[in-house]
Amino acid sequence: MNPTLPLSLFKSAQRNLTGRIRRTPQMDIVLDTGKTVTAKLENLQISGSFKIRGALNTVLSLQSETLAKGLVTASGGNHGLGVATAGAMTGASTTIYLPRNTPALKVAKLKKIATNVIVDGDVWDDANNLALEDARKTGKTYVHPFADESVIAGQGTLSLEILQDNPDIDIMLVAIGGGGLISGVASAAKLIKPGIEIIGVEAVGAPTLKNSLDAGKLVALEKIDTKANTLAPRQSAQVNFDIISKNVDQIVLVSDEEMQASAHWLWQNCGLGLELSAAAAIAALRFGAFTPPKNKKVCAIICGSGPDGH
């Protein structure tokens, strides 16, 4: 896939999704550092996170005979919920493979929506191998959580919304798991506003893309050591690495403790119920992993809901 995606791809995805998902609000938050940051509240999105954007954009591109064979994917939870919701919206059966580190609440939620939920493998990469094998054997369509053009285009609709509603944003902070969200957000944002700065945020215990950028090539982590399981594949994909190399200005790291404290702070001060990964961008600002210039307007993407701050 070409690491330079056209703006038309993101605008087409936005047309596909309009009226089917929520145009989530943006809210200004004054952090305890004194910095005011605009938060894009994807925790209020249907399915509970931004993942419905890429999943539904992909599923809507499929022919009816392909949909009839069903969908299959592997997920840390949120992408699975996105695919299961997209399947329910289009009448397609869905099989979701989850690693054993998936939170029990997400497993329970998925079992109410998906046709079939299978919990197996230590981390996402293991569950993903099982999903790929299922697709090979059954003819189901495999929906990749991050290394797919239509998924990246769907996630990039976030930038269109953010900059349409708030064109003065100078810097965006984006959590990174496999890299699908930041690939879409960074690509679309730079097409609309070339001078915008994109800061990725990874967990200290899963620096998949930071290690890859530092090495100048895609690398696989030997182990994962974070409770933020949606930020924790051992390896990204070449397409995401290429897009991120071209469009992301910096990647910073935050600890589980910093994400936990920030999720708690956001619950106590803003009434936002988030999972650890959704507090990553705010954690980077609160604990100094990234300090923006005082005159720059910052947007932090709050990527998913959950009970981790309660």
Rank of each mutant, 00 (worst) to 15 (best):
A74H: 13
S12I: 04
P207K: 09
T38V: 14
F50E: 02
T230E: 06
R22E: 02
K217S: 14
R234G: 09
F287A: 04
S183M: 06
Y97R: 10
V239Y: 10
N211C: 12
N247D: 10
A278R: 00
S212C: 09
P99D: 11
D168C: 11
Q235R: 15
A228H: 03
I118A: 07
C270H: 08
I224H: 15
A281N: 03
N2I: 01
L110V: 03
K35V: 01
D28Q: 05
L41P: 09
D120N: 12
L173E: 05
R286K: 15
T102M: 03
G184N: 12
C303E: 01
L213C: 02
P293T: 12
K210E: 13
Y97W: 15
N229P: 13
R234L: 14
G156V: 04
A39H: 00
G48N: 07
V72R: 00
L9Y: 03
L209T: 08
W267L: 09
S93H: 13
L274R: 04
R20S: 02
N2P: 08
Q250F: 06
R100W: 09
G156H: 14
A84R: 05
Q250A: 13
D242M: 07
A280Y: 02
A203L: 04
L105N: 10
A278P: 02
S262G: 01
E257T: 02
N2C: 02
K227R: 15
E161I: 12
A300L: 05
C299P: 04
S8K: 11
A281L: 03
T33K: 10
K223W: 13
I302W: 10
N269W: 01
E65S: 14
A153I: 07
I302C: 08
